[in-house]
Write a protein that binds this DNA or RNA. Structure first.
Length: 956
RNA sequence: GGGCUCGUAGCUCAGUUGGUUAGAGCGCGUCCCUGAUAAGGACGAGGUCACAAGUUCGAAUCUUGUCGGGCCCA
């Protein structure tokens, strides 16, 4: 039984052991850049567009939402761009032509701030145009940085010609969208309170506010009721009862602008009789706050009635020191956490107050000038005083009038100007709006009568949202959103092209906007700050009555940056003829329901009546492994650029595809590092398949695959994989596609099929039909697998593709897998009987493996090749069915030999399997290591099985 | 505080219209192989399905509430 070692080594040389140049170690970080360079040099993106130009599948367009051109890319960018790229590549492989134009949002406050910081005091000496030039350079720099980082991820697109919101043609195209809004009659100007810096005499954006805790004097003020119809008479009060509404405010200076008092209609209010300063009064306050309002302020107080806030609405009061009456109005933001439950409302001095004011039709009254001093519309004793001076003056005045119920120091968080560190005020200024509820005018593209809100609601209904709750989310936001304020008081943005005559009347017509657009297209938006109105409008502009060339003043405001990015459907999809409108898909983070999705929908509807997208896909946000928000200082923070340089783009891509992106995405450097195991499993499976195909050419070697064989089973598994993965991609359930692919590699190929095929692949003569049959299946498998993986693992799939020898006829001319079409599943499906048979076979496999494990523990049987599997079958028909599988019956568990036996026990299943230790019964073959009864039957090779003896002989 | 949303093994995910002992892969542990070898295989241990109440013969699945996240507002 002993074999001479030299001879043993000799036998090894007679085997067909796997061979491949496809390395086990990916070295992604080193190798990806070279592959990327090849794609760029070979113009892969352009060639794909050309190749699909005549495709019957037609064009499919994903429209890119523009990231902000600021800083390095982070994991949010990685997830977003990878998902886009994977989906686009899938559509390409389905046969669509898929032009993809990436873009950047270039204007806006963050960049302007960076430049302001860089310039410091020099800023004041510079012209707007010079500041804008600096901003432009800054944005351009980060467009370049991010572009390179995105490309490093393997994102394919028109990187040589992206869309930038700061390019002159984009600016002009945005103005065309604005012109259509003007045409539709939806643009109007109105006062609106904005955060205002008195020290710098300028409006501030939310991002320029810094909240600091300050101590202020808050006051409780009695507003006398004017008439008792609503609350007095119904509760039995008479004129002598002195009914007052008690309000609380931390900003007494806003009292001159008080136009209403807000109450919550669902909150309980009370009538409280109290005595103060020798006068009996009845006050209205929220029931929950009676103690807080009256305790220690009045000698005694008693509740005489409680009722719902709704009862108060429409009641009238007299302003305590202005000759003006106001009404009680309903507002659901009123709470009973502090104050009195009755909220002093000055629409010119607060956001909520403003919205309430607009809702109930109040003036936006703001008697404060830019320098923070009162104007002449207020009482004489306040005129010219600053709002800070006014606080004590007003408080004293109220005390003198006998309507000051109380004073109280409070510490609260109050917004401050981040530059001057001084508290800000809310002050109404003129702003431009797009109306949500105004019917379109007759001349517009949209039929009259419709409103923007109505159209938007309808469009949302007709759009496919993934996940579907996006529809409710954006729908709810559309219900409650106020008119769109499109003006900003900044420098770095697109100027709103409005002119004013000496009377202050605005020149804003579709023609005037288009005239400026023409100028911008030539000279860029910077020209707004350098050129004269008549130059901007052009020589052939026909001035409407009341306006003339020499006497115009330019608007100072710029557009909300959302108006620019929200016009990209026009500037990009419509203005680039090779794209299409509407887009097939918009894909962004779920924060864009309020942002880009909504603010693209509104302009598109306003200008065309049509939504810019057919489908909207959203993804969640990166969080820490514990599900909480990440910040840059967390150890779990993943620095995208660093991860790419540590693990390679393919790993990050695959990881992105493995998570359910609909919700939060837990991430950490550790999570990503450990994910490398999944990548390696897939890579090694590909390597194993490739290595067994080194001498296989399907054109000459392919075999028919009988269904009743492990090859047949494997082919069916592959068919199912192709179908399921394609469907998962198609529905954008990428994590399912990933899981299917990974598990197929780990289970179907690595554990089951690949393992079972080893004996025949290695030991049969190269041309043996059994070996060629398995290679036929493996070849089909590796081709399909690489194609299915290609959208995710762009580098690895491309690399593996190069190692597939003898590609199928349709793919032979393709330099890269990325030009290929998806694999198709065979059109014939196995019969139910066949499926049952395979299922039985796998059950028998499980049973045999369990017995092998038991034998290992009991008698030290470590190698399945030393065992025999005996199939105990009840009836001959079943036996014949199983016999057709031949050596598969032993190989599927790696046994040396298999045989059949009568089933002694008639009870139980029709077939059982028994595993027997043959170490002392049969001799082990020196070549195949199988223990079989036929080892020793060949006279020439007594240490081999008949099959191996024959093989060695034929190889001589 | 409001709108939307999520919560199944250490991790990533399955769990059909409510129906036997809740599944998979990875990881982990133990073992095997050394002809996929910085690979490969087998077996095993892991879960009060966030919590509580309710509907039901029966709930991870339906209802309500609580707790804890996330996004967007206030």
């Amino acid at each position: 039984m002993t074999t001479n070692p030299a001879e043993k080594k000799n036998y090894k040389q007679t085997l067909n052991l796997p061979q491949t140049q496809f390395p086990m170690e990916a070295k992604l970080v080193q190798n990806e850049p070279a592959r990327l360079k090849t794609w760029q040099e070979e113009h892969l993106y352009k060639r794909l567009l050309t190749a699909r130009a005549q495709s019957p599948k037609g064009k499919w367009v994903l429209h890119d939402g523009p990231p902000f051109a600021n800083g390095d890319i982070h994991m949010g960018h990685v997830i977003n761009k990878v998902l886009k790229d994977v989906i686009i590549r899938f559509r390409t492989m389905q046969g669509h032509q898929t032009p993809y134009v990436p873009g950047w949002d270039c204007h806006g406050l963050p960049i302007e701030h960076k430049i302001q910081q860089e310039l410091g005091p020099k800023l004041r000496e510079m012209s707007v145009v010079d500041v804008r030039k600096r901003c432009f350079e800054y944005a351009a720099k980060y467009v370049k940085v991010q572009s390179e980082q995105f490309q490093r991820l393997g994102i394919l697109g028109e990187w040589g010609n992206p869309y930038l919101t700061m390019k002159p043609e984009y600016e002009a195209d945005t103005l065309e969208v604005f012109a259509r809004f003007v045409e539709a009659g939806l643009v109007y100007k109105q006062l609106k309170p904005v955060p205002w810096s008195v020290s710098n005499q300028t409006a501030l954006a939310d991002a320029e506010l810094e909240y600091q805790d300050v101590t202020d004097t808050s006051i409780y003020v009695e507003f006398p009721a004017s008439g008792l119809e609503r609350v007095g008479t119904p509760f039995g009060l008479g004129p002598g009862d002195n009914l007052v509404f008690v309000v609380w405010t931390t900003t007494p200076w806003t009292l001159p602008a008080n136009l209403a008092i807000a109450v919550n209609p669902d909150v309980q209010y009370a009538l409280v009789r109290y005595h103060r300063d020798g006068v009996d009064r009845v006050g209205v306050v929220a029931a929950d706050l009676i103690e807080r309002v009256f305790k220690d302020r009045v000698s005694k107080f008693e509740t005489i009635k409680t009722f719902e806030g709704a009862q108060l609405v429409e009641a009238v009061y007299q302003h305590p020191f202005v000759d003006r009456r106001g009404k009680i109005v309903a507002a659901d933001y009123v709470t009973t956490t502090d104050g009195t439950g009755l909220v002093h409302t000055a629409p010119g001095h607060g956001e909520e107050d403003y919205e309430t004011g607009v809702r109930v039709g109040l003036d936006v009254y703001s008697p404060v000038r830019a320098d923070g001093k009162f104007d002449d519309t207020v009482s004489e004793w306040l005129r010219g005083k600053t709002v800070w001076e006014a606080n004590p003056i007003i408080t004293n005045r109220l005390r003198e009038k006998g309507v000051l119920l109380g004073e109280e120091k409070i510490t609260h968080s109050y917004p401050h100007d981040w530059r001057s560190k001084k508290p800000i005020i809310f002050r109404a200024t003129e702003q431009w709006f797009v109306a949500m509820n105004k019917p379109f005018s007759a001349g517009s593209k949209v039929s009259g009568g419709a409103t923007l809100r109505g159209l938007a609601k309808q469009a949302v209904e007709q759009t496919d949202f993934v996940p579907d709750w996006g529809k409710h989310r954006i729908g709810g936001m559309l219900d409650s959103r106020p008119d769109w304020c499109i003006s900003r008081q900044r420098a770095w943005g697109l100027p709103i092209p409005v002119f004013y005559n000496e009377a202050g009347e605005a020149l804003l017509t579709p023609q005037s906007v288009r005239a400026v657009a023409r100028h911008f297209r030539e000279r860029g938006a910077d020209s707004w700050f350098t050129d004269e109105p008549d130059e901007l409008l052009g020589a052939d502009f026909r001035y409407p009555p009341g306006f003339s060339a020499g006497k115009l003043r330019k608007e100072k405001d710029i557009f909300d940056v959302w108006f620019e990015s929200g016009s990209s459907w026009h500037a990009v999809l419509q203005c680039r003829s090779y794209l299409k409108f509407p887009a097939d898909l918009y894909l962004e983070g779920s924060d864009q329901h309020r942002g880009w999705f909504q603010l693209s929908l509104l302009p598109a509807l306003g200008a065309t009546g049509q939504a810019p997208f057919k489908q909207v896909l959203t993804h969640g946000f990166v969080v820490k492994p514990d599900g909480k928000k990440v910040s840059k200082s967390d150890p779990e923070y993943v620095t995208a650029t660093k991860e790419i340089e540590t693990h390679g783009a393919d790993l990050l891509r695959l990881w992105t595809c493995s998570v359910d992106f609909e919700g939060d995405i837990p991430t950490s450097p550790k999570v990503i590092k450990e994910f490398g195991d999944k990548y390696r499993k897939i890579r090694n499976t590909l390597r194993y398949l490739l290595s067994n195909l080194y001498d296989f050419n399907p054109a000459t070697d392919a075999q028919e695959i009988p269904p009743n064989s492990l090859d047949g089973w494997a082919l069916h598994q592959l068919d199912a994989l192709v179908r399921d993965v394609t469907e998962a991609y198609d529905k954008y359930v990428l994590h399912r596609a990933f899981r299917l692919l990974h598990d197929f590699c780990a289970v179907q190929i690595s554990a089951v099929y690949g393992n079972a095929m080893k004996d025949r692949l290695y030991c049969e003569v190269p041309n043996a039909p059994l070996r060629r049959r398995s290679q036929t299946v493996m070849h089909k498998t590796v081709v399909a697998l690489v194609k299915l993986l290609a959208p995710m693992l762009v580098f690895t799939a491309d690399e593996a593709w190069e190692h597939i020898r003898h590609k199928p006829a349709d793919d032979r001319e393709l330099q890269t897998v990325h030009m290929a079409l998806l694999p198709t599943a065979s059109d014939s499906s196995p019969t139910d009987d066949q499926l049952q048979e395979w299922k039985l076979l796998m059950e028998l496999r499980d049973s045999a493996l369990a017995q092998l494990d038991a034998l290992k523990k009991e008698v030290g049987l470590n190698k399945a090749l030393d065992a025999e599997v005996i199939y105990q079958v009840e009836d001959d028909a079943l036996r014949r069915k199983l016999e057709a599988y031949g050596v598969d019956l032993a190989d599927l568990v790696g046994a040396g030999f298999h045989s059949f036996a009568e089933k002694s026990d008639k009870a139980g299943p029709a077939v059982t399997v028994k595993v027997v230790d043959r170490r002392t019964t049969y001799q082990a073959c020196a070549r195949s290591w199988k223990r079989r009864p036929d080892v020793g039957t060949d006279a020439e090779y007594p240490d081999l099985t008949a099959r191996d003896a024959q093989a060695v002989r034929s190889l001589k």
